[in-house]
Lab assay of single mutants.
Amino acid sequence: DHDVVPEDKFQETLHLKEKEGCPQAFHALLSWLLTQDSTAILDFWRVLFKDYNLERYGRLQPILDSFPKDVDLSQPRKGRKPPAVPKALVPPPRLPTKRKASEEARAAAPAALTPRGTASPGSQLKAKPPKKPESSAEQQRLPLGNGIQTMSASVQRAVAMSSGDVPGARGAVEGILIQQVFESGGSKKCIQVGGEFYTPSKFEDSGSGKNKARSSSGPKPLVRAKGAQGAAPGGGEARLGQQGSVPAPLALPSDPQLHQKNEDECAVCRDGGELICCDGCPRAFHLACLSPPLREIPSGTWRCSSCLQATVQEVQPRAEEPRPQEPPVETPLPPGLRSAGEEVRGPPGEPLAGMDTTLVYKHLPAPPSAAPLPGLDSSALHPLLCVGPEGQQNLAPGARCGVCGDGTDVLRCTHCAAAFHWRCHFPAGTSRPGTGLRCRSCSGDVTPAPVEGVLAPSPARLAPGPAKDDTASHEPALHRDDLESLLSEHTFDGILQWAIQSMARPAAPFPS
């Protein structure tokens, strides 16, 4: 592969990997390779389809078979030569091979799209000592099968071997295949498990690692696999990028399955594409389908809103127990993405979901129960707010008499603000006073009005108090039968009158 990737590009890729991570280095090298001529790309395919690569990765054979028959990708048995050289000459001794072996032994695996480039050397060096003999053996194999790289107009793939297949390693990572398949204008990513390549439709969760975000852009890794992070704060999961590491605690105790298979379609829109997988259930989501939507993949363990709600429900009964003089119970939860139609709101002032922060849900004790107040519409209280300059209440639009249902020339009671006709409430011909108009209920007259088809109010509507207090003497005590009587009149003013009279009014101040 030294004929494909020059030394300066190799060093530039290593520097970019240390600065921005393996995914960015892979993407940059792939983009550079696509700008080369067809001879360089053909050399790339020839390096990929060597015999030892085909033996190690069985899924490469179907890719090789898909090439046109007129494309010669065979390799000479006596060494490598550029395709432009007409004579089959043995190339001179390859010093770059020693360079590659020494550099890969030092860096474990470079971040390139060629056999030198995919593992994360920093994480491997940190986690190597417990498994040094086995990992050293794996390093000797890295130059042979560490990076199976493929690129063409139909298929483009980048393979990364790992030393996680050490025997006896619980939940060992089998390997990473960062794979971009450009077929019919689409893009897919796969993962390699035990020599087999699994596409998103049959993606397997190998051991402790999972394909957290099938994305090839942005600074985030394709698999949430930063070796420096180790395990999740809650004892979460091992990262795919942690090559040759000792077994780590796999999943939280509440995880239903340690080796679950995540779905390959969004649980909201039932469509495929780039998904984020939940650590607590097999569901996966688009970032845009979450509520609120996320802009980037959160670091650490992530769970959907259903799993978060289940966790909150487990903690909430203990938080609601009476604990005198104790601060509110704080339950730190990872930043969760909410699927459509589901929402768990945190306290005000918290950062938005999706940031690399930890939301704190506070379970406050329930407030003391209070008697429910009568629910009145805002339009129902409008007549009470229509007060004239002299303190006389004006008529609201649409006000109707509670007896006849007519809204023409209605009066407004100064005591309960109900609309009424003087002739309907006082049919006996009582003279109307000039000021202080009161309806039949507030004036103490319980004589029913002779209106055909309208039920008369119940005599129990009024329960006047002592006459010594004029204001308190007109406080009506309405009961269920009074409400039914008012409802039978089918008037809004009657219902409003009952609601206003049912509310307690402050006692009249004593004259000074």
Rank of each mutant, 00 (worst) to 15 (best):
Q243V: 08
Q243T: 12
G244H: 09
S245N: 06
L252Y: 09
P253S: 08
S254N: 12
S254L: 14
Q257M: 13
H259F: 09
N262P: 11
N262D: 09
E263G: 10
D271W: 13
G272T: 14
G273Q: 12
L275A: 11
L275M: 11
I276W: 15
G280S: 09
R283M: 10
R283D: 14
F285S: 13
P292V: 09
P293M: 00
R295I: 12
E296Y: 14
I297R: 11
P298L: 08
T301L: 11
W302V: 13
C307I: 13
A310H: 10
T311C: 13
V312C: 10
E314D: 13
V315L: 11
Q316L: 11
R323V: 09
P324R: 11
E326D: 09
L333M: 05
S339G: 08
S339C: 14
A340W: 00
A340F: 03
E342N: 15
R345Y: 06
R345H: 09
G349C: 07
G349H: 13
L352G: 10
M355H: 13
L359N: 08
L359W: 13
L359F: 12
H363T: 05
L373K: 05
L373Q: 11
G375T: 08
L376Q: 05
S379L: 12
A380T: 12
L381P: 07
P383K: 06
L385G: 10
V387E: 06
E390M: 05
G391H: 03
G391V: 13
G398E: 07
G402K: 13
V403R: 05
C404A: 02
V410F: 05
H421C: 04
W422Q: 11
R423V: 00
P427G: 08
G429C: 10
T430S: 10
T430I: 08
R432F: 12
P433K: 08
L437W: 14
C439N: 02
R440Q: 09
R440Y: 15
S441Q: 10
S443F: 13
S443V: 08
D445M: 04
P448W: 14
E452R: 06
L455R: 06
A456K: 06
A456F: 12
A456G: 09
A456C: 13
S458V: 08
P464D: 03
G465H: 14
P466A: 13
A467Y: 09
K468H: 04
S473C: 14
E475M: 05
E475Q: 10
A477T: 09
H479W: 11
R480K: 08
D481E: 09
D481Y: 03
T491I: 02
I495T: 02
L496V: 08
L496A: 01
Q497F: 01
W498G: 01
A499D: 02
S502W: 03
S502R: 02
M503W: 04
A504R: 01
P506C: 03
A508V: 11
P509D: 05
F510C: 02
